[in-house]
């Protein structure tokens, strides 16, 4: 018998279950793109059949970090840039959990960039949502890793001399097996992409364009947007790494020229997740590590039985 009966509990889920019935209400600015991520997630979770107590939403710091304050599931609001290592370990300790990590572009592509690269490389079975608003919002508008070249802010008074980071290309190169970009203004596509990302067995990276109406007025609402799958102007195979790479490059460049391209960019269904790889090597037990502590009949190995090599 499992000690975690929320996991695999097969029942109808209402999206309202994910809304706290009492405070706190979101403290995001009116018109903030973050509302759309929350809404899309609340729609997507019931669709993948997950109830609030089998979901662990792990966030970093910033406006995006407050996602799990307003999503009524298990949550871990960690520290700046560190949502991924916390989330990865939770998934390893209890693979039955639906683990979602989230953070902003500074959080995921800047201070936590190393964790992003390695989580993608290892292909952990989880979803990573990056709220990309091309700016540091909560600290009042400083230039971020995805801010356009020339971006002026109090910390870059003459305009940034740096080219922005290319999150989709970096994700692909690092090893993500699902890469998509969506935008706050496109709620249906956002929900569908989040459903796909959660159902994907491997590291699913969603770059979510979330307008910051307060500090990044230039980006407006990320409209008009184009869905690269629906547009006749673009034709590429999302299972082909080379074609995906080209389309990503074009998409990243286009954003800074005012054209908002979104959609699915890369999917590799064949690559085993890290959990599968590790299990195949005998390094991840079939019984979740977390279950065993609640099993009164479990037999625990003892160091006493290892001493022969020392005598």
């Amino acid at each position: 018998m499992s000690a975690f009966n929320a996991i695999g509990d097969d029942r109808e889920i209402d999206r309202d279950e994910y809304t706290p019935s009492v405070e706190p209400q979101p403290t995001w600015c009116p018109g903030c793109g973050d509302f759309s991520v929350l809404k899309a997630l609340k729609q997507a979770l019931p669709e993948v059949g997950r109830n609030p107590e089998e979901v662990l939403c792990v966030t970093g710091i910033g406006c995006s970090g407050k996602l799990n304050s307003y999503l009524d599931s298990y949550g871990f609001h960690t520290i700046h840039g560190r949502s991924l290592p916390v989330a990865r370990a939770a998934k390893l300790a209890n693979p039955g959990l639906e683990v979602i990590a989230a953070g902003g572009d500074g959080d995921g592509y800047g201070i936590g960039g190393n964790h992003f690269i390695h989580s993608a490389r290892e292909n952990h079975d989880m979803t990573y949502i990056v709220f990309n608003n091309e700016v540091f919002g909560l600290t009042k508008g400083q230039t971020s890793p995805t801010s356009p070249k020339g971006h002026k802010s109090k910390t870059q008074p003459s305009g940034s001399a740096k080219d922005p980071l290319r999150p989709l290309s970096m994700s692909l190169t690092a090893g993500s097996s699902y890469v998509a970009r969506t935008a706050a203004v496109n709620p249906n596509q956002a929900k569908e992409i989040l459903v796909e990302a959660m159902e994907h067995d491997g590291f699913a990276h969603v770059d979510f364009l979330t307008q910051c109406p307060t500090w990044n007025k230039d980006a407006r609402q990320y409209v008009p947007y184009v869905d690269v799958q629906e547009s006749d102007d673009y034709d590429f195979d999302i299972t082909d790494r080379r074609e995906a790479a080209e389309m990503m490059y074009e998409t990243e460049s286009a954003l800074y020229e005012g054209e908002v391209l979104t959609g699915r960019y890369y999917v590799d269904e064949d690559r085993p997740s890290y959990q599968e790889e590790k299990r195949a090597l005998g390094e991840l037990p079939d019984e979740p590590v977390a279950e065993r502590y609640f099993d009164d009949d479990a037999e625990w190995e003892r160091s006493y039985d290892l001493l022969e090599r020392h005598t």
Partner: peptide, 27 residues
Amino acid sequence: GGVAEQVEDEIAAAALAVGASHAGAKA
């Protein structure tokens, strides 16, 4: 029945211990 993880840096190493413990392991 245990899990050992060599990770990208020590920030991640300690953060993983926190995440594993949060999810119920002795880490």
